[in-house]
Simulated scan of single mutants.
Amino acid sequence: MSLLASSSSCNYKYIVFPSFHGPDVRKTLLSHMRKQFDFNGITMFDDQGIERSEEIAPSLKKAIKESRISIVILSKKYASSSWCLDELVDILKRKKAMKQIVMTVFYGVEPFGVRNQTGEFGIAFNETCARKTDEERQKWSKALNEVANIAGEDFLRCDNEAKRIEKIARDVSNKLNATPCRDFDGMVGLEAHLTEMESLLDLDYDGVKMVGISGPAGIGKTTIAKALQSRFSNRFQLTCFVDNLRGSYLSGLDELRLQEQFLSNVLNQDGIRINHSGVIEERLCKLRVLIILDDVDHIKQLEALANKTTWFGPRSRIVVTTENKELLQQEWYR
């Protein structure tokens, strides 16, 4: 097998970055979107805990960069925040330079009012610009005009918000499916391995399957696993690639600490603490997940992170890469 490296990258930390303003939007529309996205396995950046100031925070710039899609929620008070307007400018720069997908939601405002900064939206915009330079006003006005020309969801003409939010989640998934990762283009021999792995994973099977990839170092086990995640992640509610496992058991990282790190990665939540080994099953047994455990070198790692198929929800798939084939010779690996 010969694998030729590619220089492009699609390793995004988040699927969606939401740009919005106001606690009213956070408590209503955004909270319902977040719940629906969680159900569909769509990771969304959460800005709670970031202190607001006059300038957009570096952490937000970083989150925009690490997101595949930005969803701009344009409400009556959106333009009352210079922070949001700067955020929008940054999002549109990413759209031009990096082909980031931008989606729009018009929440209580008309696209015309956003495009031309009129009505209540215009009043908020003018109040913000009163304290700014003409250069900033023109920059923001141009960004609002541009984003309002992106066809989006109009909640003023919506008689069922729940259905509309479900549609947004489907649209996000469809856009992801329509823009596949190009990281693995040109890798000779990879497609044949992916075809074989797809057959072993049997993605239409309703039960849980665990599949192993074994072989000596340097033959491309990790590359195959990453390509699998890229190709099939949209079929699962949550996906997680767990690397740096080699030596984790021998280094003294105990079972619970390993599980804490694992759950934090799977659920995209920092600082998870657990006090018994049943927590993985409690948190994941209803979820359809794709878990990849890379470079496993001790049976204790498997026992800590994927000991039983009942830990994971129906149609979940667990992929393990290892140099030690004996680790995979258990009755639940195929």
Results as ranks from 00 to 15, higher is better:
L4W: 08
A5V: 15
A5M: 14
S7D: 13
S7N: 14
S8E: 15
N11S: 14
P23A: 11
L29Y: 09
M33V: 12
M33C: 12
Q36Y: 13
D38K: 00
G41F: 04
G41T: 09
I42E: 06
M44V: 14
D47W: 04
R52P: 07
S53A: 00
E54V: 13
K61H: 12
E66D: 11
S70D: 11
I71P: 04
S75G: 11
K76S: 07
W83V: 03
V89K: 08
K96R: 15
I101P: 09
V102K: 05
T104G: 06
N116L: 02
G119A: 13
G122C: 03
G122E: 03
R131D: 08
T133Y: 05
E136W: 08
R137K: 11
R137A: 04
L144Y: 09
N145Q: 09
N149F: 09
D154F: 00
L156A: 05
L156W: 05
R170M: 15
V172T: 07
S173T: 13
R182C: 01
M197V: 15
M197A: 15
L200S: 11
L200E: 12
K209A: 10
S214V: 08
G215R: 06
G215A: 06
G220E: 04
T222I: 07
A225S: 13
Q229L: 12
L238T: 10
T239G: 04
C240D: 02
F241C: 04
V242A: 06
R246Y: 10
Y249L: 01
S264P: 01
G278S: 10
I280N: 01
E281N: 12
R283F: 04
L287N: 06
E303G: 07
L305Q: 04
N307K: 12
P314M: 15
V319C: 03
